[in-house]
């Protein structure tokens, strides 16, 4: 029962982060929101292993964390080294 509060809080923050990811306005804001969503997913996973009474499966959360890092670093690499045709602020201003 005591986990319900935390799960609720995490779900509320997921909603807020998703709104930020949908609003943008730059790609970097979306990437930031995506990174935070990954952290949230990791925490939710860890908590749900406790809810269903199998705390040994927390190592899956480690996999989530690593993947989150891989995704963010990939985003950074492509935006820094790639010639990506201005995915920055100017390109996004008329969207959403």
């Amino acid at each position: 029962m005591m986990y319900a509060v935390v799960v609720g809080a995490l779900l509320v923050s997921l909603c807020l982060l998703l709104v930020r990811a949908l609003l943008g306005p730059t790609v970097f804001d979306r990437a930031l929101a995506g990174n935070a969503v990954g952290t949230m997913a990791m925490l939710l996973l860890a908590i749900f292993q406790f809810v269903s009474g199998r705390p040994e499966f927390v190592d899956l959360a480690l996999v989530y964390g690593l993947l989150n890092i891989v995704g963010t670093i990939a985003v950074q690499k492509f935006f820094r080294y790639g010639d990506l045709g201005e995915p920055g602020v100017a390109d996004e201003e008329h969207r959403l």
Partner: peptide, 24 residues
């Protein structure tokens, strides 16, 4: 609704994380 493909990819990453959490 998104026309910028970088945004689409990032949103699909978020979608996958949510999906994985549903699976958990």
């Amino acid at each position: 609704r998104q026309r910028n493909l970088y945004g689409v990819v990032l949103l699909s990453g978020i979608y996958s994380f949510l999906m994985a959490t549903v699976m958990v």
